[in-house]
Design a protein around this nucleic acid. Structure first.
Lengths: 165, 165
DNA sequence: GGTAACAATGCAGTATCATCATGATATGAC
DNA sequence: GTCATATCATGATGATACTGCATTGTTACC
């Protein structure tokens, strides 16, 4: 691959996005050091904040992991006081997982930090570029979503073929 | 913070970036399923592609992990035929890790895919928005880099204080 | 009422990623 | 030559994140 002394824009967009992605991860890891929170557990917490109290089965479906895995994640979060388990009102097999009161405050803080960071980052962008940036990132996210979905279905199709043979 | 019925731009930029980040990870995981490649190992491979043959110690420093960890990662990559270990020409303690010939081709493929994906994503953006998008993402990456670095140093300072007491 | 499906979990297992402690060997300064 | 230091390997350990299978209690259907 030939590199000219000015970088090609195609390369830099993706590279910057990947860098941003890496920096986010690094920042999260640092922020959660010393707590029992990990990416997987935080994902569960966000899901709970977004969708409200849920059965473990529902969480497993929405997060696309095995129910068994949810049990473990909830165990850890419950031990840390982030969530509570309560019986389902009508189905005695099921368990409702809810955010603990302290975790609700915690999530509000996270959302506040989230908004602050967002404002901070947008502040680094020239005002005249902001609208276009917004549209562009939106377009990229949409396209990427499509691509990943398409890949997923190809994968499932291949799997189905393999089983059929 | 006031929410109008249209979402505030501050929230959406960050959210979209986080979504993009998540989609990248998902895509990588899918692409590497069935290979011995994992995020950490791929990171080592990229580092090797970028910096050329290196001692394990140098890799440990650059990737900011323990030397012991590098041994394990290199073990796995060597078993998979991605890297080779060879003696250091002048220091018989040291070992030089290099990309295997097949891995060099593999990395070229990855870079090609990388460029294709980049073009594909940029293609989803309205032509008039591309220049601003580029500048904007660049600005955001730069700002985020600063923030993470600042956080890091605050963390180190706190650690130093703790040790000093 | 009997049976099949369902929710959660105990148990067992795999893989990754990381740490520290220890030891073998090589280097380089004195 | 000797001794501190550097490089790497091994072994032990631990946390996390998954999985599958078998079990227990519950519900729903016929």
């Amino acid at each position: 691959m030939q590199y000219h002394h000015d970088m090609t824009p195609e390369i830099t967009v993706l590279d910057r996005l990947l860098e941003v992605s890496e920096l986010f991860q690094k920042d999260m890891a640092r922020a959660f050091a010393g707590t029992p929170l990990t990416p997987s557990r935080t994902r569960l917490l966000w899901e709970l904040a977004a969708s409200g109290p849920s059965t473990q089965h529902a969480l497993a479906t929405r997060l696309e992991v095995s129910p068994r895995n949810i049990t473990g994640l909830v165990d850890a979060l419950e031990a840390g006081g982030y969530v509570t388990r309560s019986p389902h009102p009508s189905d005695r097999r099921a368990i409702i997982v809810s955010l603990a009161a302290s975790a609700q405050a915690f999530m509000r803080d996270m959302q506040r930090d989230h908004a602050e960071l967002s404002a901070e980052l947008l502040g680094a962008v020239a005002p005249a570029d902001r609208a276009a940036l917004l549209r562009g990132v939106e377009a990229i996210a949409g396209r990427l979503r499509e691509l990943v979905e398409a890949e997923e279905q190809r994968g499932e199709a291949a799997e189905a073929r393999a089983v059929g043979e």
